[in-house]
Nucleic acid binder design. Structure first.
Lengths: 342, 342
DNA sequence: CACGCCGATGGAAGCGGTTTCACGAACACC
DNA sequence: GGTGTTCGTGAAACCGCTTCCATCGGCGTG
């Protein structure tokens, strides 16, 4: 019976075949209105026989929406963001949207031309709301979306204006918490391996480190910058040890760098945690596999994704034009690399 | 002048403000029809003043399309596919679509419920065509798309029916080519570290290995299965060496496994390539950083992506209902690990 | 039995934009 | 001056679907 026609079947055809009006047929599929069982069954039978597939793309904006939210992610293959964070963030976003029956739609522009086309596409009403995860943000996109009345939420605080909604994790608190933990463990000469200069997240962590050290009246000048990866962490640690032999703890801005630092320490005969405690950042899989297992600052990235989704859906439903901001605090994942001494 | 109105501006408003009909205004934005300079400028000025943003979501299917192609990728965080292949594939697809002015739209369903919603969404006409990269494919999706007349192309040969269009790389030829290269270098006792049993790609490579060995009248029973990662490659190599000491070459089904194998060989005192040649698969970044640098089979993944995009666009424009298949051959990336012999 | 209410239904309008078609004006050609 | 061909234009139809509104029949109530 299944007719595989070349041209799509319209709601009108289904309605005619079922002997009802297009209105009634529409109600059967949208589901929220009263339709008699008789009519419903007739429509459903006709739809099955004709192979009807609802065509939702033409819904008007005044009425129902497209039931989808766009998420703009950095281009695939861009490091720095890709490693462990993006999947966790997307999982959080996806879970929350899925629970609301909303389709998550991903975009990954690879060139300026792509960004330009994406602006048109998103402003064109194909999605009900937009989440922006990409950092180097074109200015045109948010304002275009605003002109269309499309709610937008940033992941991570954007550099520019404050007139936007965003959700971020608290890197400042993360840096402070990690450092305070080391101080509580009795460490006094604490070094910090920071991320690249100028990067927002790295700067926040560094200031958190400095604040904690200042509060404890400890010197906070043992700082090296590195590129987030293992090798540069190893080199940074070697430089730190060359400058001061008395270091008894290290806080690195990523687990990769912390693992590199731990390696450098052990190669040079320092015991972890007996001689030097090591704490990383992100609580990535690496942290659990080092020898000894490594303490790390766990940012609630999945929660961040969920909150982004929740926030943008709330903005979309209330159509309020206010801006909301949310900052989520870190947790410590404590393991052997910072616990105990000797 | 820029009016930031709460409600979107419609084409009608722009036309009225410009003193022309909606038809003429439409022609200005679609751009392909003759409009006098006077009218054009009036419309453009009015659009700028009102802050008009075209709303493309309601275009009829009979007429113009949505100018977008959906790509269904595995869930973020699923290994095995994620590592180096997916970014390369997406880059190829994205480049080709971008060149045609088509928006690439990504979907990454995380649960059966997500897959079900995605079926509705894609069949709902939000995209003009679909590329399927996910392997464990629900049956409903392709047939639904077909009912809607939405062209679909698979990345990688799907397990089931042959009545589909797909583009794939030739893993069989890849395995054969790698093995033949080792044979040409004078190697005779060649082992193979294969991927997980039952995986399509791994089986094809294994059969290519066997074919090349058979043609050269060499024994092809030195085969271990591993999980594509470095550690399991190392263990597999140790097992192979335990069974036969005379091995003089290894072909591994991934660069990670090959790197693990090379490590195991060197720990056990074998020189690479002097005693044992090593060749990997995928030509990932790992291959260039081993000591010595590692030969590898380079699959043209970017080309595969480009061909997928080209194929699906061709299907969309011709509206032909035939199925087309394409299989791309491998290349060898030769480095020190297989060249020369002490 | 008159009245009012409610559930089910279909006609028609509407959504934002494109395309068909016919009309009028300008222009070229004989 | 008549004829034919463009070119620019706008009214109207159209796309697939939703929703407003009026209608109709059945039912309970006084």
């Amino acid at each position: 019976m299944e007719a595989v026609s070349r041209t799509p079947v319209s709601l009108d055809q289904v309605a005619r075949a079922a002997g009802v009006s297009r209105t009634t047929a529409s109600r059967v599929f949208s589901g929220n209105q009263a339709v008699s069982d008789l009519a419903r069954q007739a429509v459903e039978r006709a739809a099955a026989e004709l192979g009807y597939v609802p065509y939702n793309a033409t819904r008007s904006p005044a009425a129902s929406r497209s039931e989808s939210v766009g998420v703009v992610v950095p281009e695939p293959g861009s490091r720095l963001f890709l490693e462990p964070l993006l999947p966790r963030l997307l999982r959080g976003i996806g879970e929350e949207l899925s629970a609301s029956g909303i389709q998550m739609v991903l975009f990954s522009p690879q060139s300026p031309a792509d960004v330009h086309r994406l602006e048109h596409y998103l402003a064109g009403g194909h999605v009900d709301a937009v989440l922006l995860l990409t950092l180097h943000e074109s200015d045109a996109l948010p304002s275009r979306l605003q002109a269309r009345g499309i709610p937008t939420v940033f992941g991570g605080r954007p550099r520019g204006s404050i007139e936007v909604s965003f959700v971020d994790v608290d890197n400042h608190a993360g840096g402070r918490t990690a450092t305070e933990h080391l101080i509580e463990q009795g460490r006094r000469v604490i070094a910090h391996i920071s991320g690249p200069r100028g990067l927002h997240a790295a700067t926040d962590q560094l200031q958190g480190f400095r604040e904690a050290m200042w509060n404890a009246a400890l010197r906070s000048d043992l700082v090296e910058h590195a590129a987030f990866d293992r090798d540069s962490g190893e080199i940074a640690m070697e430089r730190l040890l060359a400058s001061t032999h008395r270091i008894d703890a290290v806080f690195a801005a990523s687990d990769e760098m912390a693992a590199g630092a731990m390696w450098a320490l052990q190669v040079l005969g320092r015991r972890v945690p007996d001689d030097v405690a090591v704490i990383g950042f992100d609580d990535s899989p690496v942290a659990a596999t080092t020898q000894p297992p490594m303490s790390s600052v766990r940012q609630p990235i999945e929660d961040m994704g969920r909150e982004m989704a929740r926030l943008v859906l709330s903005l979309a439903s209330t159509r309020a034009d206010g801006h909301r901001q949310m900052i989520l605090g870190p947790e410590l994942a404590l393991r052997a690399s910072t616990i105990g001494r000797g």
